[in-house]
Amino acid sequence: MTSGYGRFALARAGQAAVVVLLAYVLTFLVISVLPGDAITNSLRDPQSGLSEADIQRIVQYYGLDQPVLVQLALSLGRFLTGELGFSLQSNLPVAQIVGDALPSTLTLASTALAIAVVFAIGIAYGAHYAPPRWAGLLRSIPSFFLSVPNFVIGLVLIELFAFRLHAFTTTDPNSATATLFAAVTLAIPVSAPLAEVLIASLDHESRQEYALVARSRGLDGAQLFARHLVKPSALPSVAMVALIVGELLGGSVITETIFGRDGIGTVVQKAVTGEDQPVLQAVVSLSAVVFVAVNLAADLLTPLLDPRVNVREAANA
């Protein structure tokens, strides 16, 4: 198992790296075919206050006087050595801009993910073991969660908890409580599909004969859930979590704006309006890295959860 699993993990990690590189190339090409030469435009802007020597240096750095493919090669080479370039708006290193914004967004997204998972498990468990009347109500929650846009949830939470109950203040968006409410806002729509998948797979698994046989061995509802049903039901949910991360990244832009947090969302917003190509390139690549990494984790987790998955065959697939 171990050596087979090691080879499987290596193969999957290799595939993931290829995906990240392709995403980088694609982003670069998309930005470069967009109308208007973003870099030159902002460089030639009289308000940028750059001297001719500075401009010359920057043009050389990005290879702007050379064909697109050469620019791509230069850019890719820098990306591979970890160099992200400089913002065209502020002249700060992109790594620094992103690095400053990242902790806030990561805290928000990971808290939201944790809350979403807890919500989903709670709803699914309740939908199964609560008295029938409550269970029916719980089953309708996911579709309700999905149908409310998250800016509405955010505004309602701010109105209720910040302005009426004074649980947190909007002037200090990075406090623990404010972060928690922002995370709840982000978590609610994200937990809905997860809860639905969990409910469906719990339904499926609890109808299987092994669940009946396990009950005949004297297991009660909670034991059956924890020992027998969680693991097989988690299998489709793990894939779902990997997809949800994409939604978290997108949703965080809106949530950050509503709660006034400075994060990646704000960076993206500024970069898009200011046509700040290096920052955009970095943020999109970063998203690709996160997305691919989470999916890689889900891939690597599946054979550990399900012994029926043959890693040798999966590695060759």
């Binding site: 004969e209 092994y210 005949s216 004297g218 009660d220 693991k231 097989p232 012994p307």
Partner: peptide, 25 residues
């Protein structure tokens, strides 16, 4: 009743292929 299950009352199911949890040893 749960205390009787297994201890007093055993159950052997029809299809052994589906009567054990596939993801647990």
């Amino acid at each position: 009743f749960r205390a009787l299950r297994g201890r007093q009352l055993g159950f052997i199911p029809q299809d052994p292929g589906s009567a054990l949890n596939p993801v647990r040893s």
